[in-house]
Design a protein around this nucleic acid. Structure first.
Length: 453
RNA sequence: GUGGUUGUAGCUCAGUUGGUUAGAGCGCCUGAUUGUGGUUCAGGAGGUCGUCGGUUCGAGACCGAUCUUCCACCCCA
């Protein structure tokens, strides 16, 4: 067989030791906050029945689903009629499974399937990869991780507030606070669509106004008029959008044109609860042009933007009142958020925010000159490890220079040198690799020094 | 899915209208230093020019296809 060039599919990546430990650093922070807020972990399969996934993300989403071709003779049920019917008709004959597209829909499936084992309100978190057959770009991959936290079986706006505070805590712990949590409400979007003269055309309306910050008022106005909207009303609306004001006054302004509305009431409750819970709204921005997850969100919607990095949203979420309905379980309201691990990684990399210790493989490396000192080192290694110090001994007998070089290269902060003199006296050359300082100490002193560091 | 863009050493990039043997910096290896890394100096290794095909006496350069990268649209973490 001829040799083949090793490669991986477009939009996928290998993660080396350094990337992996950095990804774990982020994941650990997210995970510990999920637990702090009372979420329990679940996992679902990478592959789902295609029927579970299709029709949940809109036409666009269906196109981006990775389908898995049936095993065995996958053409056995295909007729020439199917072939002529085109790819859509063929699909159901040759594929019955697909890779999950997000974690929310599999979770809804999970809730319905395990309804008898679940006590509501149910809070779950889930950290797993998802797949989309999208065309890759920066911060946009075909395989990426989502870190989801959802609460189902409760209508309270307090859950939305909880998720907001969770987001704030996660980014505080990651030492990246240049974020804006944008918030809006589907009910307001729907009423705004009617207001400008596009009743029932909420989705095209949202798609247009979502582009405001990208293409500007004029272009969006053009697009809306194209849909049949009233230009005077659009102008009126954009005036409110343009106001840089407190959330309370923004709500008042929007109420002045929409009248009373469920969305406005809920957002008022949201800000009230946030205040009562001691949360900050400093990085929470009410943005009536925010439009997310149009196919299934029904209430409050969120999106987190990195203020000083050009990348898509790094976290998003919202409330869905009837996601379990399609699986035959009515009246279960859920609200959740999803952190984009890969994008957060890209942001922290760009802002240089990973602690150096993340890449540190061990605290100390034992170096030696010959077989005898190597063997002596094995005992020390065991002692260090039982004292809880991560430690390694250089495995081969080679020049000491090489061993020092190795410790330096992979970022080990301390080295312990063993030679004939050290074996005799029981005092070892203990070197701080960063400062270059070296002192002669016995093993207990060394352990103590590292532990106090 | 539509339109564009990128690919030369481990990394970042030069490479003239198509013309001998494809370069630099950094990194890597060896030595100066047989018990000390990160500095310095000397030497060395490393490339089927993304891949396949075409034009040509001759292709890293031109043409086509394909893969990959990034960008815009669409949508989204």
């Amino acid at each position: 067989m001829s040799t083949q060039k090793p490669s991986i599919p477009k939009g996928t990546r290998d993660f080396g030791p350094e990337e992996s430990s950095r990804r774990n650093y982020i994941m650990d922070i997210i995970k510990s906050n999920f637990k702090l807020y009372g979420f329990s972990q679940i996992e679902t399969p990478a592959i789902e029945n295609l029927s579970t996934l299709t029709g949940k993300y809109g036409d666009e989403g269906d196109k981006l689903l990775f389908k898995i071709i049936n095993s065995g003779d996958y053409l056995k049920n295909v007729t020439t009629d199917d072939l002529e019917g085109g790819s859509q008709q063929m699909l159901s004959k040759i594929s019955e499974k697909g890779l999950r597209y997000d974690l929310t829909v599999p979770f809804a499936r999970f809730v319905v399937q395990h309804r008898n084992d679940i006590t509501f309100p149910f809070k779950r978190f889930q950290i797993q990869p998802v797949w989309r057959a999208d065309r890759p770009q920066k911060g946009r991959y075909r395989e990426f991780y989502q870190c989801d936290a959802d609460i189902v079986g409760t209508d309270s706006l307090w859950n939305e507030v909880n998720l907001t505070m969770l987001i704030q805590d996660v980014f505080r712990d990651l030492k990246y606070e240049q974020i804006t949590i944008k918030i809006n409400h589907r009910d307001i979007l729907s009423k705004l669509a009617s207001f400008v003269g596009l009743p029932g055309q909420e989705i095209p309306f949202c798609v247009a106004i979502d582009k405001l910050d990208k293409i500007g008022d004029e272009k969006v106005t053009e697009e809306l008029i194209g849909l049949g909207a009233d230009s005077a009303k659009i102008a009126e609306l954009f005036e409110i959008f343009g106001k840089e004001d407190s959330s309370a006054s923004k709500l008042e302004a929007i109420a002045s044109i929409l009248g009373s509305s469920r969305g406005i009431d809920e957002l008022k409750d949201y800000f009230k609860f946030l205040k009562l819970a001691g949360g900050s709204d400093a990085n929470v921005e009410l943005d009536f042009s925010l439009a997310r997850g149009l196919t299934y969100y029904t209430g409050v919607i969120f999106e987190v933007k990195a203020n000083d990095v050009k990348i898509g949203s790094i976290c998003g979420g919202g409330r869905y009142d009837n996601l379990t309905g399609v699986f035959g379980m009515e009246n279960v309201s859920g609200v959740g958020i999803s952190f984009g691990l890969d994008r957060i990684y890209d942001v922290l990399t760009e802002k240089n925010l990973f602690p150096t210790s993340v890449n540190q493989p061990v605290d100390a490396l034992i170096l030696h000159f010959d077989q005898e000192s190597f063997e002596h080192g094995l005992g020390l290694l065991a002692k260090m490890r039982s004292a809880g110090i991560t430690c390694e001994i250089y495995p081969d007998v080679i020049k000491i220079k090489k061993q020092f070089n190795y410790a330096d290269k992979i970022g080990i902060p301390y080295t312990i040198v063993i030679g004939s003199e050290e074996i005799k006296t029981g005092k070892y050359a203990f070197k701080n690799m960063k400062s270059g300082e070296q002192q002669t100490l016995d093993i207990n002193e060394i352990i103590q020094l590292i532990q106090n560091d």
